[in-house]
């Protein structure tokens, strides 16, 4: 086949995506998203996560099976939609990921900084990034656990508790942080998530103070990101937004990250949890 014919073939294949009418572009993106739903690799992460939960690891050679995610030791079903919440043993409001750090430290004997960063175990591939998330050649036990635990709340109603004073304080702080503008671009969360029906390039943006948008957003994280070939958690979502806001790095499982998640979870209250999802 001549190069010209190959090129024509490639063009014909890509043309429908770039047809001049904006409407067609959006329709094609919607079709692409629907195709993705049928083949979500998040399943692979969920399967690994379920194994990590029962596997003996760490200096204490112990599993996470007695980890209390808020509904009692070892209760995973429905735990995700009841987080973040106040935990008496740490006297802190915690989201799933910071709570897993607590359990890895308390039950498995990991040092806190070890539990917070990658890799806890892995494929033996060299660690390329120091980010607390999985990346090129690097698996994350944390990410796998999050995928599985989240999947155990699929179909349930998002209902984070809001009765403890520290939960209320975290919500208020999260709300303030949502409106906090700083850095060389003057950005805050509000810049992109304060109005309805807006986009960055072709990416739709949820208005986080709008219940329906917040429910859809919170209800579809964690998610497998096709463009990155990775499953991404809610902590990652915060970390990545903050990076794009040109802020310094948001520390994994930090109080600010948790406060933001508390704010979002409460804005999304009453929505149906449908994650791990799959996104572009």
């Amino acid at each position: 086949m001549g190069i010209q014919r190959v090129l024509a073939g490639v063009l014909a294949a890509t043309l429908p995506c770039f047809s001049p009418a904006q409407q067609d572009t959006l329709k094609e993106i919607e079709r692409y998203r629907q195709l993705l739903q049928e083949s979500n690799p998040a399943e692979l992460y969920e399967a690994r996560g379920a194994e990590h939960w029962t596997r003996k690891r760490g200096p204490k050679s112990s599993s996470l099976e007695r980890c209390d995610l808020g509904l009692g030791p070892g209760v995973v079903k429905g735990a995700y939609v009841r987080l973040p919440r106040y935990f008496a043993d740490t006297d802190r409001v915690q989201d799933l990921e910071s709570r897993l750090v607590t359990c890895m430290v308390a039950l498995q004997g990991f040092a806190p900084e070890e539990a917070r960063r990658n890799p806890f175990s892995g494929t033996g591939a060299p660690m390329i990034t120091t980010d607390p998330f999985s990346g090129v050649g690097q698996r994350s036990v944390m990410t796998d656990l999050v995928a599985w635990i989240a999947s155990e709340s699929r179909g349930m109603t998002i209902a984070p508790p809001m009765s403890h004073p520290k939960e209320r304080l975290a919500y208020q702080a999260g709300e303030r942080l949502f409106y906090f503008r700083a850095g060389p671009y003057d950005f805050g969360c509000i810049t992109c998530h304060g109005e309805e029906g807006k986009r960055i390039r072709l990416q739709n943006l949820p208005k986080m103070t709008n219940a329906k948008d917040a429910q859809r957003a919170f209800g579809t994280w964690p998610a497998y990101r096709v463009s990155e070939g990775e499953l991404r958690s809610m902590q990652w979502r915060m970390w990545e937004c903050i990076r794009q806001m040109r802020f310094p790095e948001l520390e994994f499982a930090s109080d600010a990250s948790i406060a933001l998640i508390v704010f979002l979870a409460n804005r999304a209250e009453g929505g149906t949890f449908d994650a791990p999802a799959i996104k572009r």
């Binding site: 702080a173 942080l177 906090f180 700083a182 850095g183 060389p184 903050i242 990076r243 040109r246 802020f247 310094p248 790095e249 948001l250 520390e251 930090s254 109080d255 600010a256 990250s257 406060a259």
Partner: peptide
């Protein structure tokens, strides 16, 4: 307090930006 403790300088993005 959160702004002081939850962020760290990385590359050109220093905590002074906050």
């Amino acid at each position: 307090e959160m702004i002081k403790t939850s962020f760290r300088t990385r590359g050109q993005a220093t905590v002074a930006r906050l």
